[in-house]
Computed example of a mutant assay.
Amino acid sequence: MKQEIGSTPQHGLRCQPMNIAFTDSWLNSMQGLRLVIPTGCTVAGTAGGDGPEISRSILISAPFVAIIPVGAQLAAVADNNPAGWVIALKPGVLGQVSQLAFDVVPRWSRFWNPFLREAAGTLTTLHHADLIDAACADAFADVVSVHVALRYGHCAGAAVPDMPLTRQMLTRIEAFVHEHIAETILVGQLAVLVHMSASNFARAFKTATGTPPHLYVTLERVKFARTMLCQQTPPLVDVGARAGFRTQQHFTEVFHRYTGVTPRAYRLAHRTVGS
C-alpha cells in the first residue's frame, strides 16, 4: 500500500506541498532551516525574528526560492490555493561535514537556483500524477539538503589556493546578482561586496570562475530569462525587463547570442516538449 506524504510523523513530512506546509504543526516544530519554493503565481510571505529586537520579513515568488529559519511564520499572499513546496533541510545528511556547512548557510536569503526550480517542477509533476510517496519525498528532501550544504555552506569560508576570493565571497556575489537581476549591476558594486577595487576584483573573479564579472552577469540574466520562459507565461517584454535587459531588442539579441534561438522560439520549443 502506498504511503502518502505526511502519513506518519517519521516519514514524508520534510517535503510538503505548500498548502499543507502552512498548517503542518509538526513541520513548524522542527529545528533548522526550511527551503521555500513557490510555483506558478503564488507569492509567499515569511516573517520572524533573529533575536529579541531583530525582526525579518521577505516575500518570495517564482522563479526565486528562499531559505528561512524553521520558526519563521509562513503564509501565502492573496492566494487561497498556494502552489509550491516547503522542504525542511536536514543538516546531518552528509554527516559532520554538512553539520558544519549548515552553520554558514545564510538565513533569510532569497535567490534564484535553477536546480532547485527543476526539483520543484519534478515534485509537482509526480504529485499531480499521484506517483510520490513518503519515501520518495524524503529522498527529494535529502538531495536538496545535500545541494544546499554544498552550494551555500560547504567550506564557504575557505579560499581556493591562488585565488583571493573565498567561496563565501563568491556566494555573496551570486546572491547579490540574483537579488538585483532586474537592475543595472556594475563591476564596482560587486567589488564593494568583497572590499576590493574594481580592477583587482575583475582579475580575481576571472581567476576564480574563469569568466569576467560582466559576462557572468549577462549569462545569469540569460539563465534567469530561460527559467521564466519555461515556467511562466508573461509577455516577452516583461521577461526581458525582469531579467535586466534594457530593451526588448537587446534582450532578443543577447538571448540569441548565447542560446542560438530567440526568446519566442525558446518558449515555443519548451511548450512543444512539455505537451
Score class of each variant (00 low, 15 high):
Pro164Ile: 02
Thr122His: 15
Phe176Met: 01
Leu150Asn: 04
Leu150Gln: 04
Ala156Val: 05
Ala135Thr: 13
Asp142Met: 09
Ala120Cys: 10
Thr166Trp: 00
Ala135Tyr: 13
Gly153Pro: 07
Thr125Phe: 12
Pro164His: 00
Pro114Lys: 13
His195Asn: 12
His147Pro: 11
Leu165Gly: 01
Gly157Ile: 02
His180Arg: 15
Ala135Trp: 05
Met163Leu: 09
Val160His: 10
His147Met: 07
Asn200Pro: 10
Ile173Trp: 01
Val144Met: 14
His178Glu: 10
Ala135Met: 08
Ala156Pro: 10
Thr171Val: 11
Ala158His: 14
Arg110Ala: 05
Ala137Met: 10
Ala159Pro: 06
Asp142Ser: 07
Gly153Cys: 02
Phe176Asp: 07
Leu165Arg: 05
Ile181Tyr: 12
Ala137Glu: 06
Val194Tyr: 03
Ala134Gly: 14
Leu126Arg: 13
Val160Glu: 11
Phe140Cys: 13
Leu150Ile: 00
Thr171Asn: 13
Ala191His: 05
Phe201Trp: 07
Val187Gly: 04
Leu123Tyr: 05
Ala159Trp: 02
Val148Met: 02
Val192His: 10
Trp112Glu: 14
Thr166Lys: 03
Asp130Ile: 04
Ala158Trp: 09
Gly153His: 03
Phe201Cys: 03
Pro114His: 11
Met163Asp: 13
Thr124Val: 08
Gly153Leu: 03
Ala134Asn: 12
Leu190Asp: 05
Val192Phe: 02
Met196Cys: 07
Ala129Gly: 10
Val177Asn: 03
Ser145Ala: 01
Leu170Ile: 08
Val192Asn: 13
Leu190Ile: 02
Phe205Ile: 08
Val177Arg: 04
His127Lys: 09
Arg117Ile: 15
Pro114Ile: 07
Leu116Ser: 11
Pro114Trp: 10
Thr209Tyr: 04
Phe176Asn: 04
Asp130Phe: 11
Thr125His: 11
His147Val: 06
Gly121Glu: 15
Gly121Ala: 14
His147Asp: 13
Gly153Arg: 06
Glu183Met: 12
Asp130Thr: 09
Arg151Ala: 15
His180Lys: 15
Thr124Glu: 15
Val187Asp: 03
Tyr152Asn: 07
Leu190Cys: 08
Val144Asn: 08
Pro164Arg: 11
His154Phe: 09
Gly121Gln: 14
Leu165Ser: 08
Ser145Leu: 01
Ala204Cys: 03
Leu170Trp: 07
Ser145Asn: 01
Pro161Asp: 09
Ala202Trp: 00
Arg172Ala: 10
Thr184Glu: 09
Val146Met: 06
Val187Leu: 05
Leu190Tyr: 08
Glu118Asn: 14
Ala139Met: 09
Val160Arg: 15
Glu174Gly: 12
Cys136Trp: 12
Asp130Asn: 15
Asn113Asp: 15
Leu123Arg: 09
Met196Thr: 09
His195Ala: 13
Thr184Ser: 04
His147Thr: 08
His180Leu: 05
Gly153Ser: 05
Thr184Asp: 10
His178Thr: 04
Ala120Tyr: 08
Cys155Lys: 06
Glu179Arg: 15
Val177Asp: 00
Thr207Lys: 05
Thr166Asn: 01
Ala120Glu: 05
Val194Trp: 01
Phe111Ala: 05
His154Asp: 06
Ala135Asn: 12
Thr184Ile: 00
Val194Gly: 02
Phe140His: 13
